[in-house]
């Protein structure tokens, strides 16, 4: 957008300052998490209005909270579980969502609109309602306490999401693209896979990113369907291990939050770039 004319103080005033402020506000909780994660326990008992309350730094940083996380809990295992579950459920959802979205966006068939709305409506069904009846389904498939309990249930809220996001993107792709291919002799399916999907890559990536995040975050199903410590995911594992009775272990909690997000953030930083540039490219090309 061209709200800012190039150069000079205006750029500072309209762009750098507000953007800087927002970035600082957004990232501050992370900074605070990081400081808390290396702050010795004793310092966390200093009230905010004491003169020696040092919020932004600590003079005696410690790694004890991280050590505790790996030594006393199964954090590394939870990380792997969470990754596996999130990747699998994202994969399944993308597959289902992509095909469904193409059908809904491009093909003409009776009740198409109704089906589209129907798929979407499943996204509205509250989890707090579903988790009890779902428990029965999980039991009858004998999936309790296995990652598959989550891998197969997460798509329930991921598929509608992926489908609708993808439908949006398919609609922005000019039909002429595949129609040209069809005129050149490709079948509909070929046109879809070879022409439309690559063009829709940014959409697929963004749907994937967000589906991944949603499964990464999920709490209720993970709490209810898993029981072994070795099976748990990060949110459930960390919370139930580090909130003991009336004591919160803030240091390890924050260390866990940090470690649970930084690796993913790193992967994202790569994908986000792809996502934005791929989209730009798609339009220009």
């Amino acid at each position: 957008m061209a709200a800012v004319s190039s150069g000079g103080w205006r750029r500072w005033f309209y762009l750098y300052l507000p953007l800087g402020a927002i970035v600082i506000l957004t990232l501050f909780p992370f900074y605070y998490m990081a400081v808390t994660a290396v702050r010795p326990d004793r310092e966390m008992y200093i009230p905010w209005n004491r003169p020696n309350f040092a919020p932004f730094w600590t003079l005696r940083p410690t790694l004890e909270h991280f050590a505790l996380l790996f030594r006393e809990t199964l954090f590394a295992r939870w990380l792997v579980n969470t990754l596996f579950i999130a990747l699998m459920s994202t994969g399944i959802s993308l597959f289902c969502g992509l095909l469904a979205a193409y059908a809904l966006a491009r093909l003409r068939f009776p009740l198409g609109g109704a089906l589209g709305t129907g798929i979407f409506v499943t996204y509205l069904v509250p989890q707090t309602l579903l988790f009890l009846p779902l428990g029965e389904v999980i039991r009858s498939f004998r999936l309790g306490d296995t990652p598959w309990a989550l891998i197969l249930t997460y798509p329930t809220f991921l598929i509608p999401f992926c489908t609708w996001l993808m439908m949006g993107y398919f609609r922005t792709i000019p039909r002429e693209l595949e129609e040209c291919a069809q005129i050149d002799g490709a079948t509909r399916l070929q046109a879809m896979v070879r022409i439309v999907f690559p063009v829709a890559m940014p959409g697929i990536l963004s749907a994937g990113i967000f589906a991944f995040t949603l499964s990464w975050n999920e709490f209720i199903y993970a709490l209810v369907f898993l029981s072994s410590a070795t099976q748990k995911t990060i949110p459930v594992g960390v919370v139930s291990e580090l909130v003991r009775g009336d004591t919160f272990f803030w240091g390890p909690l924050m260390a866990g939050a940090l470690l649970g997000s930084v690796p993913v953030a790193f992967i994202y930083s790569f994908f986000v770039e792809q996502y934005v540039s791929a989209m730009t490219g798609a339009v220009k090309g």
């Binding site: 009890l132 428990g135 039991r139 309790g144 709490l223 209810v224 919370v239 139930s240 009775g245």
Partner: peptide
């Protein structure tokens, strides 16, 4: 023997789900 431990507040959730699904601890 497996001893599983979770936060106090979550015991209700697990108990309810277990009774409804007729399987669990």
């Amino acid at each position: 023997v497996t001893v599983e431990r979770i936060g106090m507040g979550d015991i209700r959730t697990r108990t309810t789900a277990a009774i409804e699904a007729k399987s669990g601890p």
